[in-house]
Amino acid sequence: MGGQDAGPICDDQHDFSLWEKRVDALMILCSGKGYFTVDGLRRALEDMGEAAFEDMSYYERWIAAINQNLIEKGAYSLEELGAKMAEVQVRGQTYGEASLGE
């Protein structure tokens, strides 16, 4: 996107929430274990298209890219992911309620 026109740079700063820190940790751990490279993540991020930059937050895009690479590498199947997400979504109303453990 270098050189494209864009509006002012917003300098809002937020603290990273736990789920964002977990996405970051999963990214580092899985790339360290050889499930993907940072290049594979970048490719998946780019393939989401320009609209994803408007519609999704930074770590939303990253968990989508991590998942895409893990599926491609066979870490788990789409069926397993679908079943697990359905299970998670009925656990509770908030992230804290849906996330088991700590």
Binding site: W19, L26, A64, L81
Partner: peptide, 12 residues
């Protein structure tokens, strides 16, 4: 996307 993070983490 949060539910995806939880699911991915638990599967791993």
């Amino acid at each position: 996307w949060q539910s995806m993070e939880i699911a991915v983490r638990e599967l791993l």
